[in-house]
Design a protein around this nucleic acid. Sequence first.
DNA 1: TATGAATGAGACTTCATTCAT
DNA 2: AATGAATGAAGTCTCATTCAT
Lengths: 201, 201, 201, 201
Amino acid sequence: MARPVGASGADTMRAIRKAAIHRIYRHGYEAMSLRTLAADVGLRVGSLHNYIPNKQEFLGNLLDEIMAELLLDFEAHMADVSEPRDALMAFVEFHIDWHTARKEEVFIGNMELRSLSPEQYARITARRKQYERHLRAILERGRRKGLWRVENPAVVSKAILALLTGVSNWYRPDGKLSRKQLTRLYQSMVERMLHEPEGPG
Amino acid sequence: MARPVGASGADTMRAIRKAAIHRIYRHGYEAMSLRTLAADVGLRVGSLHNYIPNKQEFLGNLLDEIMAELLLDFEAHMADVSEPRDALMAFVEFHIDWHTARKEEVFIGNMELRSLSPEQYARITARRKQYERHLRAILERGRRKGLWRVENPAVVSKAILALLTGVSNWYRPDGKLSRKQLTRLYQSMVERMLHEPEGPG
Amino acid sequence: MARPVGASGADTMRAIRKAAIHRIYRHGYEAMSLRTLAADVGLRVGSLHNYIPNKQEFLGNLLDEIMAELLLDFEAHMADVSEPRDALMAFVEFHIDWHTARKEEVFIGNMELRSLSPEQYARITARRKQYERHLRAILERGRRKGLWRVENPAVVSKAILALLTGVSNWYRPDGKLSRKQLTRLYQSMVERMLHEPEGPG
Amino acid sequence: MARPVGASGADTMRAIRKAAIHRIYRHGYEAMSLRTLAADVGLRVGSLHNYIPNKQEFLGNLLDEIMAELLLDFEAHMADVSEPRDALMAFVEFHIDWHTARKEEVFIGNMELRSLSPEQYARITARRKQYERHLRAILERGRRKGLWRVENPAVVSKAILALLTGVSNWYRPDGKLSRKQLTRLYQSMVERMLHEPEGPG
DNA sequence: TATGAATGAGACTTCATTCAT
DNA sequence: AATGAATGAAGTCTCATTCAT
């Protein structure tokens, strides 16, 4: 049959990605059937293969794009920041923004690594590590400057990431706290974590 | 065809649970085929149904048992602690112990909720919430005693849980830090998080 | 793997129905395997599910269509008949025609009710009862007109139906009696059944 | 384990037969699982094979016993009858008695022939034919005596059997008609069927 | 581009049956 | 006798994928 009026390949592709993210978020990659994915965007399953080579590749590309976009947004956000303390605060802000605004992408970016082929896995976790290295670099720059004491930057950066990422598990846009308030709260928690306690502790 | 010498139902059931936890941990519930699970414990796939009613129920029971055991162990661990500060430190210790020693159980207990039926989901998340309430109760008791300042206990308890749970994502028993060192590190991070910053910050 | 030249959905569907009727007639619904049914029409078992949602629904739809067609044909056959005696003779003729020409459909329509889900059962037996009511209405109209004496129309209509339906158990198109002869014989039996015996009985 | 107190092999076997008849009656031989059959009589499926060699043989023996008992009862019932008209009335009485009192046995004896192996089929249909021959012999004796006119005894005997057997499809012990009334009604219908109509027909 | 028809692989599950205990 | 443990076969069904139209 001919293409329906008003449909464009690029639009359809975007719709497929969006629907897939939602389905994978809710039930996982394995539980997402291409038949229902096709139905989500008004296609039959056969037509889907005009857009995606196969399910596995599609997942890999999807996650790759998500991580690439994360990194790109991150770099844009950090462009004008140089001071370590400012950078740390900006990192927290960025991370919380992204992890609340793009909750589903973030979630599947974390969870569906296990569904990737080894090659895909290597490609995508490289991006994740790069993101983590950004945080660690900030921590180390701050330490060198004597801003805070970080005994074990490897652990602390992982701890901060876990702390921040946890937001996406429970955040609701219509919850009690605005995103700004939330950011302040987490910024202050992170700051305190890096602070030396007063006593001999 | 018949019962082989030495076969015992209870042992087999334990082996099935263990193998399932491992497979689900690595590739997810949907990706675990009963055929391979059976092979893991030296059975054919049909024999598995002498032990489990069906795959879905099996998952539900598995997660339920994990959460029940977590709560039981937790209560035993906290039996003799009463002071809020001690309780908080004991909580951190317990959580890190369990989340490093039983990493796989913990991981699937967090991740496979989405594969549960609505009834199973309700049952199991009830246990999760109970665990979280324990932490929150400690925080509130400490606040009432003036031990630390917690503006938003709901958020802070979730933050602490995320922080601690994150350990299971990267912890390796043969890593640089002993479990005891790790516990101390996280205990100090949690303490600082609850500490009021010195300056007007 | 793809669509072979000349494949047509409607033809295939018809072939599936026909093959299913034959298999169910010979060995019963439970004993009909979808694999062999598929093979009967030159498909693999998976392809069958392009045509039927599942085995149970398929049975229900099959029986429903059979009963619907029976009723439709019946109404067409009886359109121009009004006198009760003519109607009764037409009923016998129609019933024997249908039950010899469509022996297999009739048989499974009677026998596989027990394999239906409760909902399907209700739907399909409703049609059966409607058919039976037609006969009973004829009997009662004849009685009111004094054409024959029917003490217990409920029982007698069931008796006549059983009598006539029995034909399909042994009728062979190549048997001694033509269908026309058979019809005459049964018409006369039914007439006599409704006749008052001459003597004091 | 040892035999439970009070159980006897013969009792158990009877219980199995009874449960099987009921299950086959309701859902058919194929749909009867040995697991549930075992449960019906308080056994596990493995223990069933102390009583039955296998499912197929069991069915064959069950039907064979039913038909054998039918014939035995029949011969007892007809022992003192010699006049054809009395014999016909006695046949009707016997058939209706058996087909209402032992509805389930009768039903599966008719329906599950298709589930038999060829050897079993031959064995059991031989008994059915023998029963039918009894009726046909009565009809022919009556005809030779000029009691009634039967143009086609082969068809008429089948017709009478169908007529009578139909009772078991709807008869309920708590229905409006007593079994005696029912018998009278059917006896009179059969008589009329064999009666020559008065007019030129 | 989209669809309909088909496929092979593989999923979960049930079943009758066997046999050591 | 009865049970529990196991098996192989088979069943229904879903799925990703292919390709003629």
